[in-house]
Design a protein around this nucleic acid. Sequence first.
RNA 1: GACCCGUUAGUCAAGUGGUUAAGACACCAGCCUUUCACGCUGGUAUCGUGGGUUCAAAUCCCGCACGGGUCACCA
Length: 501
Amino acid sequence: MDQKVRVRYAPSPTGFLHIGNAQSALFNYLFARHFNGTMVLRIEDTDTKRNVQTGEDSQRENLHWLGIDWDEGPNKPNPKYAPYRQSERNAQGIYHKYVQELLDKGIAYKDYTTEEELQEMRERQRANKEAPHYDGRWYGKSEEEQKAAEAKGLKPTIRFHFPKDHEYQWDDIARGHVSFNSDNLGGDFIIEKSDGMPTYNFAVVVDDHTMDITHVLRGADHISNTPKQMAIYEALGWEHPVFCHIPLIFNPKTRKKLSKRDKDTLQFINEYKKHGYLPEAIFNFIAFLGWSPKGEREIYSKDELIKVYDPERMSKAPAYFDQKKLDWMNAQYIKQMDIDELADRTMELVKEGETEEAQRLQSIPEDELRELLKKTIHVHQRDVNKLLEVIEYAWSYYTVLDEHFNYDQLIDNEDFTKEDLLAVLNGLKDKLVNGGADLDYSQAIKEVGKETGVKGRNLYFPLNLAFTGSTSAPQIYEIMDIYSRKTDLELLDRMIAAVEA
RNA sequence: GACCCGUUAGUCAAGUGGUUAAGACACCAGCCUUUCACGCUGGUAUCGUGGGUUCAAAUCCCGCACGGGUCACCA
């Protein structure tokens, strides 16, 4: 790159950070960092009807959580390029200035067609099996006709007039050579709405140019917008940036673009956060949606991804969202992270209390909770996919005495005699009663085995059942350590009573 | 309907004319283990289809089928 790279992530603040937005932000981020360029955050809030007050904050918070930061944006303005919200830019007349230029050149014109008329036009075209398009009815109209429309109280939109039979083509980093003919782009399109706001296709060109954006990485759903934007670049005598259209994320079940209505998939980054996915894992996972590095490795830290990121390796085919693979990847991160760090993060989740499960733990005093979580993580780090599961386990251990276990599966099992069961349970009970605070549970169980002559599953199954309600459990001495000595004894007594009954 | 694009195992996904067609997830089997899990080892592909080009095609070209994206005073 001989010229300083500048890229942008330009969301419209209409809701939470969606996985598709995150993907787009992430590739821009990787691109900027890999090439030592500048990452810009621009807010595209020209749709006054759909803007959500909290949308921008949500974008910011969730990007931050993911580990994506930027060098310029509404909160970090560079005076040379500010402001970074299109509504503010519009208020400064930035867009209108160029609209006027196109009007003066006769490339843009006022259109007084009403919404009803447009709809009618589209319906008629559809009925005639034509591609829906604007028919250019207001192109080249006289000033008198415009005045007459004004007199009726009509407010015009400004349309861009396409040249006839003109090829727009570019070399897309991801897609290769792409070309469109001006004749089938849907007719002259609106660049300024009747409320004076620029449309997306116009504002994006003005902003990318005036902000010196060198590379535009965005979702593949923008491919067919690109020729329109190129037409504007051309009309204004500007050079267009390099384009890279990122493959869309598909839902494997519907085989369509991931839709916000697909209930089977978590759509928003904040949902992943509250379920206890680690941002490192999500970052890693999203980087592999539509891109892959050379080689067979799949686990990469953010810094490693920045290093190996190669835009030439962007895929063309859509990326299918595989929830199970994400779970696996998150589990990999959990396995390699140390317990204190995991405990900190789980504490964080509890404090935020965004799920019922997390809220329940808020009743536990902080020091006690931290101990409980550390012990729970120690036991379950290897088998848990997300931190919410740690929270669930912790709660089940905390409230174990409220549960009523069913001991019948061993009592009614001919492989386990009543005598052996009692010998084991009472044997361990003795150790617990007589042992000091530093009693080694693992050692104690082994001794019980030796003293009673009961071993293997006959030794461990009863203990598993007594302490967890199930014959299969992780290392039982670790579970015993999660509970208080008093609870351990209570659980043993309960089973002893059941066996004797 | 028009215009663009895609199609490699159950699911993803490498692969850019000559490979035993990577790897991951899931699944199954074996090993390990008191059990569960983790971990380890092994297992599964005539590369959508029909034609070309070539000594040689998953890779290049054409047709077909299927799938998708886009055709807003949304971004």
